[in-house]
Amino acid sequence: MIMKKLLFVSVIAMFLLSGCAMVQSPVFATLYQDVKAPLAVTGNSGASKVGTAQATSILGAVATGDASIDAAAKSAGITKIHHVDYESTNILGLYATFTVYVYGE
């Protein structure tokens, strides 16, 4: 019985330690993370439009979404990109999002 409990705890611990939802960020935190950072800058002038695209990870087990610059630009009809930022959030390694913000014309 004790062995079964130990095995169960080990499996849960392994899952929690190795199966965390991770996301790109300039700084990391284990409890809560909500960070915005630069991704790219171009030589184009003007930014009156903003487009976003997002990808999500749950428990590090399921990750979905299209967080590409192309998808973000398309969402706002941007044809000339001025700069690109991203925002990453992570809650306890259980739920993580990566959002791309494209600014341009």
Binding site: A47, S48, V50, T52, Y101, Y103
Partner: peptide, 8 residues
């Protein structure tokens, strides 16, 4: 200054 209000 440009303001962007996230998707709702």
């Amino acid at each position: 200054m440009i303001y962007f209000i996230k998707p709702f």
